[in-house]
């Protein structure tokens, strides 16, 4: 243990602190941006291969819903909506990162399934922005 302490120098601690600061900057910028928006109205934006496919109003969502999103390669992600929260319930991707993320319900949270290029992002749009409520989930 003494060996470790003698090799650890003051500069290392500074580097460690600096690295921590750097890693929290994206979070800080994001929270600052969110603070600029008045009111709270959360929408979940689901995009597949860089195209927005669904915009779901989470603030006014109630109840329980399940629907599938199918990619061009016939891969399936099952999305679950439950009282203003959203999660990917199951997916056919190999790493299952998206499934393990679980439910998200706050602005700025994301679920990403990189193999399918599927991104679910919760945005706070404030009071003025109007979203078509419950975009045709059922018909799709």
């Amino acid at each position: 243990m003494r060996n470790v302490i003698t090799t650890l120098k003051i500069g290392d601690i500074m580097i460690m602190i600096l690295l921590l600061l750097i890693s929290f900057t994206p979070l800080a910028i994001f929270t600052w941006q969110q603070a600029q928006v008045d009111g709270e109205k959360l929408i979940a934006v689901i995009s597949l291969e860089n195209e927005v496919t669904h915009e779901i109003n989470l603030s006014e969502h109630e109840g329980h819903e399940l629907f599938d999103i199918v990619t061009h390669d016939h891969e399936i992600n099952t999305i679950e909506l439950s009282d203003g929260r959203i999660q990917i319930k199951s997916a056919t991707c190999n790493d299952q990162v998206c499934v393990r993320t679980g439910f998200i319900n706050r602005a700025g949270q994301t679920i990403i399934c990189l193999p399918h290029q599927l991104v679910i992002e919760i945005q706070n749009v404030g009071d003025e922005h109007i979203v078509d409520d419950q975009v045709d989930i059922i018909s799709s």
């Binding site: 690295l19 890693s23 929290f24 994206p26 979070l27 994001f30 994301t110 990189l114 290029q117 992002e121």
Partner: peptide, 17 residues
């Protein structure tokens, strides 16, 4: 860049620690 959303960078704190 692949997911076309800067929100991916929010994973950075956990990864960095």
């Amino acid at each position: 860049w692949i997911a076309q959303t800067p929100a991916v960078m929010l994973y950075l704190p956990v990864q960095s620690i």
